[in-house]
Write a protein that binds this DNA or RNA. Structure first.
Lengths: 161, 161
DNA sequence: TTGCTCCTCACGTCACGTGAGGTGGC
DNA sequence: TTGCTCCTCACGTCACGTGAGGTGGC
């Protein structure tokens, strides 16, 4: 094994494009085109990783946890537009500070209602989460304050050394 | 094994007293009193766990990571005043958002200088950490804002169901 | 042949939680 | 005997990172 081969997959997440709005509709293969379903865009794991700024490992991990279920062709994964939206939902849930288990539950709850690919954010859940995050904010704020006091003290000590 | 016996150790961390200032000086055993070292107070792992609101597991974990090194009498751990101060320093470091590895490094740096039991908080480290925490604050703030918008939307939907 | 992208294990990381099974002194 | 506190493994959790070893098509 040559050592230069290592760590290639890891280097994918360098630029994260937040422009989830525009899809450049790269349709791969004719196997879906003949079924007449327009919008049958297909993404590789690398496509989604680049677009959302996550690693391949992350996408495989989400699949393992039952959050994503891309189509398989042999061993290779192919992600549909639905899978892509689902990923956007998962990452939004993460930004809001929910655990993957919570997110999976909320997605499952949404599946039942019929409305596609939005987070089933119950009022209760949201309010709870706001409380959690606000306490977190206060703690971080206090830490910053203490660090700033320390910096001031250190600055005051200049010349004493 | 009776099931009632389980989970006893875990229930220690219910009330956390932040009054680190006053030591109630419980001197255990005469084995230290005769050495004439006043202030030779000794704490059990349970004492410190109660006082600082952490679990026994946490204290043993810190020891395993080389952050604490209490005296042993057989298998039992006995913590000195120095160990206690050290723990206070560790927990302060954690509050400031440093990892245990960083904390260990800062403590080791302090050991060299001679000044006892304070965190060796370099100006550089502090400023870096402030940057990290401020970004974290912004992200949390945005999450809270989004959650509040969601709650507002859900409230607006009342009656539509 | 080289280079790129994809794959499956599987161990490592961080800071502990949790449980099994056992000891020692009042 | 019961109850309390202490102990040592050692596996589990969370969200992945990292590496080994291998495949497939241009």
């Amino acid at each position: 094994v040559r050592l230069g081969d290592l760590m290639r997959e890891s280097r994918l997440n360098d630029h994260s494009s937040d422009s989830i709005g525009d899809v450049d509709m790269l349709v791969r293969g004719a196997h879906t085109a003949d079924t007449a379903t327009v919008n049958a865009a297909t993404f590789t794991i690398g496509d989604l990783a680049r677009e959302f700024g996550v690693t391949l490992r992350t996408l495989r991990f989400y699949e393992d946890k039952g959050l994503l279920a891309p189509r398989r062709e042999g061993l290779t994964r192919y992600y549909s537009m639905t899978d892509r939206s689902r990923l956007a939902v998962i990452l939004k849930g993460k930004r809001l500070g929910f655990t993957l288990t919570e997110i999976r539950g909320m997605i499952a709850a949404e599946e039942g209602t019929g409305a596609p690919a939005e987070l089933r954010l119950g009022r209760e859940k949201c309010v709870e989460q706001i409380t959690v995050l606000e306490r977190q904010m206060r703690e971080t704020q206090e830490a910053i304050a203490e660090l700033k006091r320390t910096v001031a003290t250190l600055d005051g000590m200049i010349g004493r050394v």
